[in-house]
Every structure is written in C-alpha cells, then in structure tokens.
Design a protein around this nucleic acid. Structure first.
Length: 655
DNA sequence: AGCACGCCGACT
DNA sequence: GTCGGCGTGCTC
C-alpha cells in the first residue's frame, strides 16, 4: 500500500473563489500529512504562503494542471475533524457562504503552549479521562419510554417545567437538570453530547447541573466568550475518543464530537443564538444539519416555542416531548394601574401590589421592567414634543434622578434644555427604567433590600432573604428557592415594538422570568391582555406558536417561507436576481448610497437551489468585478461586490 | 488579496 | 518599432 501523494486542502482566505479544495503534492520526506492538520501552502507565486487545513488525502489528482508542493505542517494536531468539515461545508452551502468562515467559528486560533502540552499528554497517554463507573441516570419528570426513544436517535421539541431547584449550593432552572440528565445518560452510554445555550448565565446553571451528574473531566466548555487559550484547550479535549459533554454558546454547535449521541439547543428564540458573523447561520439551523449528518438525538428546548420549531413540528421533523405531569406557573393578567384608586401604586395594580408586599415578607420578589436607567424618555412638559439633543437630535434621557439629561446617541449633557417647538425649558419624564422603578419601590417598601440587575449591573444570583429585585428583561438573577412573586411590569411597552417576532419574543421574556418563580408563587402580567396573556396564563404555548405560525404563513413571512437579502453594487444584485430559480420571488429592492439591497423569498424545498445560484453569482462577481466604483479609492478594504444573508431573523428591520 | 498576462497610446 | 497603461483572470 503506497502512501497517498496528494493532499486536498481548504485555504484560510476570505476569497469566495477559493472556497473549495485545492490539490497539493505531498513532497518526499514531509511526514505527518494527515487529514485535519493545519498546513502552509504556496498560492500563485511560489513565495506567497497561505494557511489551510488538510481535508483529505488521495492519489487521484482532480486539478488538470500541474500541482504545487505542500509547504509545511504547522502542527501535528488534527484540529479539523472530518465531521466538523462536513458540517461546515453543508452549513456554508445552505447559506451561500464559505466553509472557511464556518471553520473560523469551529476551530479557534492556535495556541502553541496549549497545544504543546496537549500533544505531550497525548504522547504520554495521559490525555484520557477516568473510565466512567456510574450508572446511567434516570431523566426525571419524563416518561422513561419516551426518553429512551429520544436517546435512540429521536428529534424533539422539548417542553420543560418552570421553576428552580437546588443543585448542591447552586440554584438552577429545572430545564438545566433535564438537559444535564440527558447529557449524562448519553455519555454513560458511550457517546458525546453537545449542549448549546444562549449566554453565560445559562451555561453557569447547566454547568452546575452537569457537575452533579458527571465528573469534571467529562465536561468541556467550548465557548466563543472564553479566552483564546481556554477555548483552544476545550476544543482539543473534545477531540478525543472518549465521550464528553460539550457545553457552550452558539459556536459550541461546531465542537468536535466523533460519536455524537445528543445535540441540544436551549431557548432557540434567544437572539444570541443567531450568529452575527458571515454566513450568519443560526445555531438551531446548524444543529438541524449536524443531527441529520451525524445522527444521535436532537433536542430543542425552551419555556416557550419559536415559530421555527413549531414549523418543524408541523412538518413532522420534530415530535413533541413534554413532562409526564407538566407544572404550571400561576399567571394572573391584570389591567394596568390607572392611578385613580387610592390603592394603585405607581404602575402596579393593587392586587399585584398587595401580593408583592406580602411576598416580600418571606423572600425575594422579582420585578421585570423593559429598560435600564432612570427615565428612558423625556419630553417637553409644555407641548409634549420629544426632547432631543441639539447637537445630533438623539433622544435625551435621564440616568439618575438628580443628573442632567444626556443624549443617548452622542452622550452630550444637556444643561439648558429648550423645546424646539414651543421654547419651554421644562422637561417631563416619560416611562421608568430599572433605576427609577427601584427608587420608587424602595420608597414604597421602606426597609426592604432593593437589588437592580440590568445590562450594566450584572447579578447572577440572589439569596432567599426578602428583597425587591428589579431587573430588565433577560437580566433576571436566579433566586434561591425561587421568587415568592413575579411582577412583569412593562408588557405594554415591550409589545409596542414593531418587529416581526415581537409577540413570540415577549412571550419568551415573560415565560423565562415566570420560570424563576418558586412553585405556587403568583406571576402578575401587568397591562397586557389578549392572546399573549392567554398563552402565558393558560400555558397554551404550543397553541400560541401554531397560531403565530399560521399568521406568518398567511403573510408569507418567515419562518413560513425562507428569505434572504442580497446586497451589493446595483448590477451585481440585478444579475443575481436574474439568475435565481423561477421559484424565488423578489419582494423588495432598493438602492441607497450606490449599493442595492434586495429581499427574496422562497420555499424550503428550493432553498438549496437558491443558495447555489446566489453562491455562483457571488463567486462570479468577486472574480470579475474588481473595483466597485472606479476613481473612488475607498479607505480600507472594499466590500465584496455581492453579499448575501440567508434567514435573517428580522429581515424587515433595517430600512 | 496579489500578481501575471494581454492588448492599445506616447516615447527613444 | 517598444515601454507600460491597468482591465481581466487565476490561484491546486
């Protein structure tokens, strides 16, 4: 058996034309050329070197012309696993992007020291975790037969119970225990599990829950928020043959795992799972592709259900799995306080007020507000015109009760406000942020501890002593034993935002906060009625998702159909639109500042063909169209003449 | 991205 | 006649 003579290499370059495998001759005497290693290769003129990964070895030359020699091996670590390459290729193809862009999420920057110690440990045979001696754990709260069927390779939309439980001295959501049990059972069964969560707060809970199920050497953090060295170490640990649990944010979906038994996504509606880097593939979509390629169980779980998951349920790709005896949160929709009754306090209706007051005697009470800061809005007290910065016309805000108003955009302080309409210098506050709400509640509940948690003041946990915890949505700390009452205050304001997914977003924000309540505690949804209040209070989450998806379907909006935006120089966009398969519709097109944006829509069945067509045009345009505008030397690198973004969660947001 | 190849205007 | 303009195309 002769050794292969040709290496197929994916280059680390941003050029879409080079997003394919190139053949290189393996020179005599170059040892250790195996799939997965990082290499340097010549490109064009022999003294220009590019890095890349060896993807496969072969004797069959594909390139008709003469081949160059591989230059060198950067390191012996096979960091690009075959399953990760396959995934990156498919994910990129689905979004008309480059595989190398996906690989940048999957394979962290090389860390020489970390790698050396890993290679040394591997050579010494000390890189393996201890053999597992534990029994497969039961997945509590669910029917054993359904759990077994799931772990045999099922795909589910997983409903989870609300509430918090203690794991050692940490309190975690019940969801975290469920995912940890599923992962532990997978690992004890001899396969790896990947658990993807939106942010570090979720990861923290899940890590605690996993710690109760598995030894630490079976748990790997793989997370783009980690320092580079830790992240690289995480990836190397996940690469071994031994089953592991990999836990991390959206990039964890690309972690190496040769035998993948479970791939779980927590709270897929959270925008943090939407990848901001090209080709912008949502972690949920990457997970769907990966599970299809590698098999194993797929779990998409949340306190609510996204329309995307609902669609997958309706087409039969996912089945529903719920707890055997689902728990419910006691949600009480209440009208907004009118201020007319003597009992109404601030924005809080009297019923909620009384219960909250009683609850603060026994433990922490959560108050969810929409925005941080003091007064999110200011307007002229005379004529009501919104107060704006005289420099940049940005909105003025109050950050503390006593401070001067400040412009949200440029940060300039406004010490002598004059209304542009009527000339008045008197300002009136509009709305209340976390700081003002906390201040008012502090006055109303003298002697009670007030905790503020928002984007700036991060609080992960509070203890079980009485407190009022005022938190912006998404920043709610976990309370030991759960909150004794939950007040969702700014529902009206949250709903007022006009985005495509605002209804499901609101429901998710509320349900996630409500899930932090102690068992039996009351959750007050203030000022919101209608189908949203019904969905939350009657726990009719699937029915809501079904109705919401039906709405989108009647409007032709995602996720009922797929959409993509094409952006670039006008005739490049036009050419791309002309090249599209007939099944794709152009639903909007506009040109601003010499670049055109077009929004197209197509059915899932035609997604691959549309992506292929767009990709071809991107490559063609990148290869032929050099300068977007002759005679306009732009500083910095010019953007590609044509770019695409598939499945933008808010396609109608910009412009 | 770089860099070579290639086909039209001012020059020794 | 040739030097070199940068439009066009390729990179295994």
């Amino acid at each position: 058996m002769s050794t292969p003579t040709i290496a197929r290499v994916v280059l680390d370059t941003p050029l879409p034309q080079l997003d394919r495998l190139l053949d290189y001759r393996i020179p005599e005497g170059l040892e250790g050329v195996v799939p997965g290693v990082r290499v340097t290769v010549p490109l064009r003129s022999a003294n220009r070197m590019t890095q890349g990964f060896v993807v496969e070895l072969t004797d069959q030359q594909e390139h008709p012309g003469p081949l160059s020699d591989l230059d060198a091996i950067v390191s012996a670590a096979e960091v690009l696993r075959p399953e990760v390459w396959r995934l990156a290729r498919a994910v990129a193809d689905r979004a008309a992007g480059s595989a190398i862009d996906v690989l940048r999420l999957a394979v962290p920057k090389r860390q020489v020291r970390v790698e050396k110690s890993w290679l040394a440990a591997r050579a010494a045979g000390t890189a393996h975790p201890e053999p597992l001696t534990i029994e497969p754990p039961t997945v509590t709260r669910y029917r054993e037969a359904e759990v077994a069927a799931l772990l045999a390779g099922g795909r589910v939309a997983l409903g989870v119970d609300p509430g918090v439980v203690a794991v050692g001295d940490t309190w975690v959501g019940r969801w975290a225990v469920t995912l940890a049990q599923l992962a532990a059972r997978t690992v004890v069964g001899g396969a790896s599990a990947i658990l993807v969560v939106p942010d570090h707060r979720d990861a923290h809970q899940l890590e605690a829950a996993l710690g109760a199920q598995l030894p630490a050497d079976r748990i790997v953090r793989f997370d783009s928020a980690q320092p580079d060295a830790e992240r690289y170490r995480g990836m190397l640990r996940a690469m071994g043959d031994e089953p592991m649990v990999v836990l991390g944010n959206r990039s964890a979906v690309y972690a190496p795992a040769t035998r993948l038994g479970l791939l779980a996504i927590w709270n897929d509606g959270d925008p943090l799972l939407s990848e901001p880097l090209t080709p912008y593939v949502h972690a949920r979509d990457a997970a769907l592709v990966r599970q299809e390629q590698q098999g194993g169980a797929l779990v998409i779980a949340g306190h609510t259900r996204t329309t995307d998951v609902q669609r997958l349920v309706e087409v039969g790709w996912l089945t529903e799995l719920t707890p055997e005896r689902p728990r419910r949160v006691k949600v009480i929709p209440t009208a907004h306080a009118t201020g007319a009754s003597a009992e109404d306090h601030a924005r809080i209706p009297s019923l909620a007020w009384r219960e909250a007051a009683a609850a603060t005697k026994t433990g922490p009470v959560l108050v969810q507000v929409a925005r941080p800061g003091y007064a999110p809005g200011l307007r002229c007290a005379e004529c009501g015109t919104a107060a704006r910065c005289r420099q940049c016309a940005g909105p003025l805000q109050l950050h503390r009760a006593s401070s001067a108003p400040r412009c949200l955009w440029c940060g300039r302080e406004e010490r002598s406000f004059r209304c542009t309409e009527c000339g008045s210098s008197r300002l009136a506050r509009v709305g209340a942020g976390s700081t003002r709400t906390a201040e008012e509640l502090g006055r109303a509940f003298p002697g009670i501890r007030v905790v503020i948690a928002d984007g700036e003041r991060r609080v992960l946990e509070v203890d079980d002593r009485p407190a009022l915890v005022v938190a912006t949505r998404g920043a709610e700390p976990i309370a030991a034993g759960g909150y004794r009452a939950v007040l969702l205050l700014d529902g009206e304001r949250m709903i007022a935002r006009e985005t495509l997914r605002i209804a499901e977003d609101c429901l998710r924000w509320w349900a996630d906060a409500a899930a932090l309540a102690s068992d039996g505690a009351s959750v007050f949804l203030v000022g919101v009625g209608g189908r949203l209040a019904t969905a939350l209070s009657a726990s009719s989450i699937p029915a809501f998702a079904r109705a919401e998806l039906a709405d989108r379907r009647s409007l032709g909006f995602p996720p009922a159909a797929r959409v993509a935006t094409l952006e670039g120089v006008p005739d490049a966009v036009t050419a791309a639109l002309d090249a599209l398969p007939a099944e794709a519709d152009t639903i909007a097109e506009r040109t601003v500042d010499g670049r055109t944006r077009a929004l197209i829509r197509f059915d899932y069945a035609h997604g691959a063909a549309v992506a292929r067509s767009v990709r071809g045009e991107i490559i063609r345009q990148a290869a032929t169209r050099r300068k977007p505008l002759p005679g306009a030397p732009r500083p910095g690198r010019a953007p590609l003449p044509l770019r695409a973004r598939f499945d933008d969660p808010e396609p109608f947001d910009e412009s």
